[in-house]
Design a protein around this nucleic acid. Structure first.
Lengths: 279, 279
DNA sequence: ATTTGTTTGTAGTAAATTTACAACAAAATT
DNA sequence: AATTTTGTTGTAAATTTACTACAAACAAAT
């Protein structure tokens, strides 16, 4: 499940000199490898074919073919990612670019999942006495969505999108509670305040953010950073939000699965409650 | 840029009998193709290698290698597709299945886009005097997201997740207004009532729903049906919601692009307003 | 029944990947 | 310092793979 490029970087130290040349070559232009034969890559790296194969084996891959396939998998249609929507685009063009960007964002998330962080978050969430979700602006939507999922499990939880309510409620948390703080930038003052207060109350603070070096991180015990190359479509940080929602979904399902029978019974009850609301 | 599997389905009719056998084989287990040689695939399909090549060419691909590479790109973690989450899954397994499901849902949306419906919706939205977004439960989140986007364009708009407020406000709409009604099932009584009232007021009703034959459709002038094959036992209809959000995003960006200079100025103003809120 | 054209598979080729091994360099041991 | 040992890299051969040219089989139409 690990991204091949990440794998290469991690193995870099244990590689021989000529294998390193191959590694640099692959890291330099991974897209080119996909369309190159082993001979071409060997030549480009200034080494021989067997070295390329040994390089692949060191990564734990079966051979050169497997490297190519894995790279193709990891860099899906990279050419579209950075394409921006322009005023002259047709509806189909805009839709294509946006949906592709979203799709790629989900792919990237999948390839670079922080399993340790997720594991820690799940652990905290499932043993939480109560859970509070904080978000502002666009992130308030993610917070609401999280609340809408988690309350069904019977865990007392709530979502606040009012900074005053956030700090007030955060002040009442205890060490058995969890605060999930959602922020795209990770540098909004109000949300940082909320995280700080929650932290001071002794609660476990989980951060879901779209940036990797944000001031908010300082107050998060567990941080799930979600990086989407958003630079292109700057109208609204939608890609980031979509990925955050997906991460919340993963957290929810994982927590829900831990005690499946209880969960199932609760979800069924929730479902039955809605029957009369429908035709 | 179209998904290879969709491409295959589309070409199915123009294929010879033995080429069809290859197609079925690929569609049946695309993941297996990635690790198979042309010989293996030919054998599995009960045909010969040249037929496989001819099949690839019919798709517009250069050869078998290109098919493999394309499939690898399209199915980043083929093992998870359409698989359901089970209680025995690891965190990585759950995350993989969920994110892949979301990814596929976005792909499907992209491939089966109802351009006419979108076009009509965009037209209605951009000439709307005011826009109201109605949603309940999970769909309320989509409604809020839509509001959070569209209000930046300077169009008066609002999101209601209270059925009483919805009908009350809907009663005040006029023929120059647009009501966007969001519902996963399309059969919730309250939301149908809201749509009905909006319709009676003369407003243009746009429906965004996850089902294709829902009672709600009767009251929608424009219907954007988003069908995600939600895995049988899904804990919550998240995939559908994600797709609905993506569709709203497409609508927003398209509307925003129509008068780009005005839009840009407005978005910048909104952005500047937030500067002081950050570190 | 024969012709015509289409569809499919056989056999062969060129190019790719991979293996086996030899050459060399560096390090260690005597 | 010489020799063995160990590790690294490239050469060349073997194997597999993708692809092409051609011919057989088949179907439709005269």
């Amino acid at each position: 499940m690990t991204d091949t490029l990440v794998l290469i970087r991690r193995c870099l130290d244990s590689l021989r000199n000529s294998e390193k040349k191959v590694a640099k070559c692959v890291l330099g232009d991974p897209g080119a490898v996909i369309t190159s034969s082993i001979t071409e890559l060997a030549e480009k790296a200034g080494t021989s074919e067997p070295t390329v194969i040994r390089f692949c084996r060191k990564l734990g891959l079966g051979g050169y073919m497997e490297l190519r396939l894995n790279l193709a998998r990891d860099l899906p249609s990279a050419q579209y990612i950075f394409e921006n929507v322009s005023a002259s685009d047709s509806l189909a063009g805009i839709a294509g670019k946006i949906l592709t960007a979203h799709r790629e964002a989900i792919s990237n998330t999948l390839n670079r999942l922080d399993l340790d962080g997720l594991e820690a978050a799940v652990k905290a969430l499932q043993s939480a006495r109560r859970i509070e979700f904080y978000g502002l602006g666009g992130s308030a939507i993610v917070a609401r969505d999280a609340h809408h999922k988690f309350f069904r499990l019977g865990i007392p939880c709530v979502a606040y999108d009012d900074p005053h309510m956030q700090v007030m409620s955060a002040a009442l948390l205890s060490s058995e509670d969890v605060a999930v703080v959602i922020s795209h930038t990770g540098s909004t003052k109000d949300i940082i305040d909320s995280a700080k207060v929650a932290r001071n109350s002794g609660a476990t603070v989980i951060g879901i953010l779209g940036s990797e070096n944000a001031p908010l991180l300082k107050f998060c015990e567990i941080a799930l950073s979600v990086h989407s190359q958003e630079a292109a479509l700057r109208l609204a940080p939608m890609t980031s939000r979509l990925v955050q929602l997906a991460i919340v979904d993963v957290l929810f399902v994982t927590v829900a699965m831990k005690d499946f029978n209880v969960t199932k019974e609760r979800l069924d009850r929730v479902k039955r409650s809605l029957v009369d609301k429908r035709y």
